[in-house]
Amino acid sequence: MTNQETDNGTTRDDLLQRVALMETMIAEGRKSTARYGWIFVMWGLIYFVAMGWAVFLPFKDWAWPVCVTVGVLVGIVRVRRKRAHGAAENQRSRSIEAVWQAMCVAIILYVIAAAVSGHGNQSAYYAAVFFFVGLAHGISARILRWGVQGLVAFIWWGCGIALFFFNTRNEVLFIFLAAAFFGMILFGLYAMMLERRRAAALVQHHA
């Protein structure tokens, strides 16, 4: 009974091994997202700084290009350093990486094209950026079976919907800050907390 042959010749042990492998990969994928939790916090803070600069400081036009460039550079340098330290990767974490890379490419192309062609103040444009971020969170949540990240996806989509209904400057600013706080900073801190707990448990286990 322990090793029955199934229809297509796969034994029960084979299936159990496959399930165990998948479960390990899901856990490793979540760990990899948690390891990069600081990126969410960093981008949430960058949004706040850029918004603050654009509202309260001079040279408003430079706020977003400067802040986004700094964010991208810091992100690249830190990710490279982490990789150099030998962070483990599996197929699932590579899929998650593909999700965020595709989101970055889509947002960069879209934002630049909209800014250059003068469409950067349309409601559909603001909402679309929120939907891209929500889509990346949604796909990642489904792949990792992670309810909290699924909730974050719905926060981004909810804020995206709100942008269609509320479109004065102050309303857009408020919705943007709310999304950045709940969908980026809080989620990032939560992911970092999970990673810290895991690291502490690992240390205890070795001791």
């Binding site: 094209a113 444009y125 909402a127 796909i139």
Partner: peptide, 29 residues
């Protein structure tokens, strides 16, 4: 977009294509 009558904006049409591209790119990877 349809409910709020913003579906005429070019950024709306472009966003749909960008989303399609995103899904294809992730699946391709």
């Amino acid at each position: 977009a349809m409910l709020t009558h913003f579906d005429w904006q070019f950024s709306y049409m472009a966003a749909i294509l960008m989303m399609m591209g995103m899904a294809h790119a992730i699946s391709a990877a």
